[in-house]
Each structure stands twice: as structure tokens, then as C-alpha cells.
């Protein structure tokens, strides 16, 4: 008994000492959290770039190709962190990640971090234009061509019913982190539909694939470019045309989603001191077809992002040579 107590005491003591020593190690001056990197970074003593990976595959394709070239052409180690869109801005501002490779437009965050705090700088176009909309499967649109106009949606409401939407049609929305005006749209356009949130993109894709296998009709919030179109062809339902400023008041919104040129964003310090990596990421710009090709390899053929990037890189040397800094 005596001995064990002694052991216990030493252990507690050593834990406390260790804690004190750590505090001492970290110094007594100001400790700026924005200057702290991930504990996993630079483990092999290499130059490291940390990229934020967004949850959709298009963004993963950007990151995969950037990572492959950074590693194999420029000799960097690449760490990837997956965070939701809005928190990613925060992490970028703090320097926890160096770059966001694809952003779909966050005016509020841009105002705060780029214009006011100046901790984030714009990194230029990705080269891809994003568009959000409502889609029905093409096999259904072919049979009922008039479903592609929102004015006729009520006619089809009962065909889109599910146990979740009750006696209304189901409009399926996806992850809570994605930009959506659908609830307001359904209300303001007087549609006989219920917005059902799948809660995550994974759940939404699974459900769409399942519906497509059964050849069932469905109406879903979806976006382009997206690899799923190659597997499940979908046709957009025309909403009232988008005009500048028609989405100013979210509660009164009555128009379609805009077409957004997707942007890259860098941490301000990284953009200044990131050397070749920063220059390379700034130069990175490709087309929708390129991105889709890589996305499809990752998501549909279940290739690892690294293998998919390798395949694309081997075929398209002319394109990526231009991104490598002299």
C-alpha cells in the first residue's frame, strides 16, 4: 500500500511539473495564437503548406492537383485540413491553414477579414464558375418537359411526395453549410413543396443515387460543377431570372441563384512569405472540364485523390507548366 501511494504521488507531481515546464517553455511574453502552426506540420523537417479541403469533391480535386504538384515539382510537404466553409475563413485568418482553394462567395467574411482585418488576401479565380439551382433527373424531364419551368412545379407536387414531406412535394436540400434560399423561395413563389434537409452532402448524394436507381422522380437543390451529373444526369428547373440585387433581402427573395466565379483565398502572411508555394497557388487556374475529370476519378471511380491528380498531371503537362514559378 505504502509503495503504491508513493508512486501515485510522484506521478501527480511529475504531471504538474511537466505542465509547469511546458508553460515555461512557451515563454512568458505574449503568445500570439495566430502564429501557431499545427503540431503535425513540418514533421519531416520539410517546407510545409497547409491547405483547407472543402467537403465537396470539386474542391478536393483542386487540392489534389495542387498537392501533387507542390510535392513532386516543388518539393513541399502538404497538410490538408477539412473544415466547413465559414470556419475555414477563420482558420485562414489565423494562419492555421495557408490557402482555401475554392470559395463560393462569403461577402460577410470577405468584408471582415479581407477589407477590415487584412489577414486574408484574394488569390484570384479558380477558373471555374459555380452555379446553384433546382434540378430534376433528366429521365423525368424527358417524359415531362414542362417540369423544367418553376410555374409548372405545383402540377407535379404529388409525384415528388415522400414520407418526410407529408402531403406536399419534397424539395431536397443538402448540407447545412451550403448557401441556400430555398425555404424563402418556396414560400414566396407559392409552391406546394416542403424543403427537406438531408443534413449532409453525403446523405443527399446517397439519396439521389438511390432515387436514380429506382428511376423515381425527385426535385433537389444541387450545384454545378459537380461530378454527380456524370452519373445521374439532371436538368435544371428554371427559376425567375437572377438580377443584380434581387437577393438583397433574404426573406423576400424570388429569383434564381447567381453564377459565381469561384475564388481562391490566401492567408496574408503566406501570400507574402510563402515563396514558390504561394506563387504557384496564385497561378493555379484550370477549367470546369479539367476539374470534373479529376472529381469523377475521385468520387466515381474511387481513386485516391493522389492517384487521380497524378493521372491528370501526366496528361496535361502543358497546362500546369505555366503555373510553376521560374
Amino acid at each position: 500500500m505504502r509503495v503504491r501511494t508513493h508512486v501515485m504521488r510522484t506521478r501527480v507531481l511529475s504531471a504538474v511539473t511537466a505542465g509547469g515546464a511546458l508553460l515555461a517553455l512557451s515563454g512568458c511574453g505574449a503568445a500570439d495564437m495566430t502564429k501557431q502552426a499545427s503540431p503535425y506540420a513540418n514533421a519531416a523537417g520539410a517546407k510545409t503548406v497547409t491547405l483547407s479541403v472543402q467537403s465537396w469533391v470539386g474542391a478536393q480535386a483542386d487540392v489534389a492537383v495542387a498537392e501533387y504538384l507542390l510535392k513532386n515539382e516543388l518539393g513541399y510537404r502538404v497538410d490538408k485540413v477539412q473544415i466547413d466553409e465559414v470556419p475555414a475563413w477563420d482558420a485562414l485568418s489565423q494562419g492555421r491553414v495557408d490557402a482555401i482553394m475554392e470559395d463560393w462567395g462569403h461577402p460577410e467574411q470577405e468584408q471582415r477579414y479581407v477589407k477590415e482585418k487584412k489577414t486574408i488576401v484574394r488569390g484570384g479565380d479558380v477558373g471555374v464558375t459555380g452555379h446553384i439551382g433546382w434540378y430534376v433527373p433528366t429521365y423525368f424531364a424527358k417524359k415531362h418537359p414542362d417540369v423544367t419551368d418553376w410555374k409548372n412545379l405545383n402540377k407535379y407536387a404529388d409525384q415528388f411526395r415522400t414520407s418526410e414531406s407529408g402531403d406536399k412535394g419534397q424539395l431536397m436540400d443538402g448540407s447545412p453549410s451550403y448557401v441556400t434560399n430555398d425555404k424563402a423561395l418556396v414560400k414566396n413563389l407559392g409552391l406546394d413543396y416542403e424543403v427537406v434537409f438531408a443534413g449532409s452532402e453525403a446523405a443527399q448524394i446517397t439519396q439521389i443515387e438511390q432515387f436514380a436507381k429506382q428511376r423515381k422522380p425527385f426535385l433537389t437543390y444541387w450545384y454545378k460543377p459537380q461530378w454527380l451529373f456524370e452519373k445521374v444526369p439532371m436538368t435544371e428547373v428554371k427559376l425567375p431570372e437572377y438580377k443584380e440585387g434581387c437577393d438583397a433581402d433574404p426573406a423576400k427573395i424570388k429569383c434564381a441563384y447567381p453564377h459565381t466565379p469561384l475564388q481562391k483565398y490566401f492567408n496574408a502572411d503566406f501570400a507574402k512569405k510563402g515563396g514558390d508555394a504561394a506563387k504557384f497557388l496564385k497561378n493555379f487556374k484550370w477549367s470546369e472540364e479539367d476539374q470534373n475529370e479529376v472529381s469523377l476519378m475521385i468520387a466515381d471511380q474511387k481513386m485516391s485523390p493522389d492517384a487521380a491528380a497524378k493521372k491528370w498531371v501526366e496528361k496535361n503537362e502543358a497546362k500546369w507548366r505555366a503555373w510553376i514559378p521560374e
Binding site: A18, G19, L22, L25, S26, A31, Q36, A37
Partner: peptide, 10 residues
């Protein structure tokens, strides 16, 4: 900041 530092270090 120091707490954060200590954690990262450990």
C-alpha cells in the same frame, strides 16, 4: 495563447 502554445508543444 500560452495554453494553446503548451498544447501544441506537448
Amino acid at each position: 495563447g500560452h495554453i494553446s502554445n503548451a498544447i501544441v508543444l506537448s
